[in-house]
Amino acid sequence: MALAVGCRARPGKSRDNKTGSWRVFKPVFDREKCTKCGLCMTLCPEGCIHETEEEFVAPDYTYCKGCGICAEECPGEGIKMILEEK
């Protein structure tokens, strides 16, 4: 691998590293219970929870590591962690 001058890298190049493969438990969002308070979006260490086109929030499972902070902190208990089978 050739090094660039100053070992520089393109901004956000870490997206090549698909950390979703680390996941053991998968957060599943309940549309009924969600009040769209946005706490899960703020507290996600990956920053991978976004508002979707259907005006709902959902994590990007390509990068979600399944840490469970969103499920733990959701004030409406609208997120469940489910063992993922791969």
Partner: peptide, 22 residues
């Protein structure tokens, strides 16, 4: 804006990664 992107290699639930994002 998300200026600290996905795909970093912090442990799941890392407080430091969250602080970098914020």
């Amino acid at each position: 804006l998300e200026l600290f992107d996905c795909g970093h290699r912090a442990c799941g639930g890392c407080g430091a990664a969250l602080s970098a994002r914020l």
